[in-house]
Computed example of a mutant assay.
Amino acid sequence: MQMTNNSARTQTCVKVVTQLPSRNAFLPEPDRYAPLQSDFIPVMIKAVKQLRRLLGNRLHSVYISGDLVWRRAVVKESVLSLTVVCQQALTLDQSNALNTLLWRLKTSHHKIINDCHIDIVTTSHVRDLSQVFHWGFFFKHRAICLYGQDLSVSFGLFEASWEVAKAMNPDLSGKLARAKQKVTAASTWNTQLNTAQWIADTLIRGAFGLVMHKEGRWSESLEECAEAFIKHYPAQKTTVERLFILLERKPVKKRAVMTLLNDFGDWLIKEYARIDFKIG
């Protein structure tokens, strides 16, 4: 990849931050050369073609993440998670058109994917040194480039550090507050179940972030995240089981959901603060 001066500086700094004497300390990268699952290739090709048509010269690169990266995607169950890197922020018209594109991908490929998410980020943001533990880790260890200049080559390998754990679980307090507001205001089961499922996923991954540096590994599996967390916090086993009930979209009374979010969610935020103060 031919890099700009900014990306070259980023590469040098990242390697200094993450390099360890032994390569065994680094986290594994996804296999960027093995074939992707054939069932999902048509929807990925369609997404890239339409993104190129919509964004034109603003488009820098397109990435997949999640189960598709690890070849564990399940037809009708897995989500197509796309990260789109742009040279500049989108115009209002492009943002509106992107929402339409997202809807079309979901509806036209509903027999293959359960849902589709698209995150937009600019090149200046991903190359900002303050974002290195988030975007550097994401591109190097969690994503595969489908189109454009692969940003993973701009970063060195990362280890399972507390800095990465914090960066990959940003704004937990804000997400928790928004979830509480949505659950409180929900007037239909569908709204409550959607919100509860989303925040349960967020809290389980956030809980794993507390122990990632102790485990020395990263995991995309919610089951593995929960198992690792419970190993270090066995008293939270029942709470985690309740989060999985929300994750499975089982109807739970609003009061019970709010109690869970208030008790465990608030505890999780305080535990992040405690560990951050301890580690620094």
Rank of each mutant, 00 (worst) to 15 (best):
T123S: 08
D266R: 10
P251Q: 10
D31L: 14
K250L: 13
S154G: 07
L92G: 00
T10A: 06
T195L: 13
K270S: 04
I230S: 03
P28I: 15
M212N: 03
V16E: 07
W218D: 00
G206L: 11
L203F: 10
K182F: 09
G56T: 09
E224R: 09
I45E: 14
L80S: 02
A186N: 06
I118S: 01
T195C: 15
S95V: 09
S161M: 06
K182V: 07
R9G: 01
W162S: 02
I279L: 11
A196Y: 03
K76N: 10
F138P: 00
R71N: 04
E224Q: 12
W198A: 12
F277G: 10
F139H: 01
Q131C: 15
H213G: 02
T238I: 13
K111W: 09
L151H: 02
A143F: 09
I245C: 02
D31W: 02
D171V: 14
L59N: 03
V211D: 05
P234G: 14
P170D: 14
W198S: 09
R178S: 10
S78K: 03
H134D: 05
E215V: 12
S152W: 01
L82D: 06
V69D: 00
H232A: 09
C86Y: 06
Q94S: 08
W267F: 15
S124H: 12
T12R: 14
S154L: 02
L172H: 08
E163M: 14
Q87Y: 12
G156E: 02
K76A: 11
T91E: 12
R178L: 08
Y147H: 15
L68T: 03
S161C: 06
V121C: 03
L51M: 14
V126P: 02
S95Y: 03
L55H: 10
K166F: 07
A177P: 01
L80Q: 03
R255G: 02
F139C: 06
I279S: 05
L27F: 05
F229A: 04
K253R: 09
A167K: 01
A256M: 14
P170C: 15
R104P: 00
T238H: 13
L101P: 05
N5D: 13
E271L: 12
K106I: 05
W267I: 02
A207K: 00
H125L: 14
E163G: 03
V14I: 10
Q11N: 05
V252Q: 05
E159Y: 06
M44R: 06
E220K: 13
Y147R: 01
T107E: 08
V164R: 08
K180V: 13
S219R: 05
D93E: 15
F40L: 13
A256W: 10
L27N: 07
E227F: 11
P21V: 11
V211M: 08
K180P: 04
